[in-house]
C-alpha cells in the first residue's frame, strides 16, 4: 500500500503519456485511414496505386522501426531533431493508418451498389454521394474494426520507452529497477492499461451503437448502457437492406 502511494503519481504521469500517444496516434491514423481508404475506391488508378503503396509500406514495417528512423536517422541526416513524442505519434499513426485504410476501403466497397445507383438517379455528385450516403453507411461497418485497431494502437505504444519516452511501460520498468518489486511494479501498469482499454472499448461501442441507430438498427439486447460492456452480438452488425 505504501508502495502504491509512493509510486502512483509516477504511474499516472506515465499513463497520461500513454493516453496522449494513443489518442494522438488514433487521430492521425483516422485521418490517414479516411484519406487513403477513400482514395482506394477512386476511379483513377493512380489514386488507388498511391493507397496500395502506402498500405503495403507501412503495414510491412514495424512502428518501432519507423520511430527509430524519425528519432535517430533523420537527425543524423538532416540535423533536425524531432520531438520524440511527435515522432512516436507519427510512427504509430502511419502504421495503424495503413491498417485503417484497408478497413475504410473495404467498408466503402461493401455499401450496396444499389445505394450508389440511387444516388446517381438523384444526380448527386461524387462528393455528395460520399458525404450523404456512402460514408454514413460505411461508418457503422468500420467502427467495430476501428475499435480493435485503437486497442492494438494502445498496446503498440508500449515500445516508446526505446526512444526515451516515459510512458506507462517505461515507468513500470524504472520502478522495478529502483525498488526490485517486480510483481507490484508491473501489476500496477497492468491495471492501468486495462482501465484505459476499457474506457476506449466503452467509447467505441457507444459510437457503434449510435451509428447503428442512425441506420435504423437497434441492438436486440436493448439499449441500456450496461450492454455496452458486453460485446455486441453479431446480429446487430449485419443486415443492410438487401
Amino acid at each position: 500500500m505504501e508502495f502504491l502511494q509512493a509510486q502512483l503519481p509516477r504511474y499516472l504521469d506515465g499513463a497520461w503519456i500513454t493516453i496522449q500517444l494513443t489518442l494522438g496516434g488514433a487521430i492521425l491514423a483516422f485521418v490517414l485511414a479516411m484519406l487513403f481508404g477513400i482514395m482506394g475506391t477512386a476511379r483513377f488508378w493512380i489514386l488507388r496505386a498511391i493507397t496500395t503503396v502506402y498500405v503495403e509500406v507501412f503495414r510491412g514495417i514495424a512502428a518501432l522501426v519507423v520511430m527509430f528512423w524519425f528519432v535517430f536517422a533523420i537527425p543524423d541526416m538532416s540535423g533536425y531533431e524531432l520531438d520524440p513524442m511527435f515522432a512516436a505519434i507519427l510512427a504509430l499513426g502511419l502504421n495503424v493508418g495503413a491498417y485503417g485504410a484497408e478497413v475504410v476501403r473495404a467498408a466503402l466497397n461493401a455499401v450496396p451498389r444499389a445505394q450508389v445507383e440511387a444516388t446517381i438517379a438523384l444526380n448527386l455528385s461524387w462528393f455528395q454521394r460520399m458525404r450523404l450516403v456512402v460514408l454514413p453507411q460505411a461508418w457503422a461497418q468500420m467502427l467495430p474494426t476501428f475499435g480493435n485497431l485503437i486497442i492494438e494502437l494502445m498496446k503498440a505504444t508500449a515500445v516508446v520507452y526505446l526512444v526515451g519516452i516515459l510512458d506507462l511501460t517505461a515507468v513500470a520498468r524504472e520502478v522495478r529497477t529502483g525498488t526490485g518489486e517486480t510483481i507490484a511494479a508491473f501489476g500496477i501498469a497492468f491495471v492501468l492499461y486495462y482501465l484505459i482499454a476499457q474506457v476506449l472499448i466503452f467509447g467505441m461501442r457507444l459510437l457503434e451503437r449510435r451509428a447503428n441507430a442512425r441506420l435504423g438498427r437497434t441492438p436486440p439486447s436493448g439499449g441500456g448502457l450496461m450492454n455496452l460492456l458486453r460485446p455486441p452480438s453479431v446480429g446487430t452488425r449485419v443486415g443492410v437492406a438487401k
Binding site: 444499389a114 440511387a118 438517379a121 438523384l122 443492410v240
Partner: peptide, 28 residues
C-alpha cells in the same frame, strides 16, 4: 431531367423519410 424508381426501393437507410426526399433537391 430523368428520375428512376427501383424494384428494391433503394431508400437511404441512414436518413429519415424526410431527408431521403429533401437531400437531393437541396444539394443538387
Amino acid at each position: 431531367r430523368i428520375g428512376m424508381v427501383f424494384q428494391q426501393f433503394n431508400l437511404f437507410p441512414n436518413m429519415s423519410v424526410r431527408k431521403n426526399i429533401m437531400e437531393a433537391p437541396v444539394h443538387v
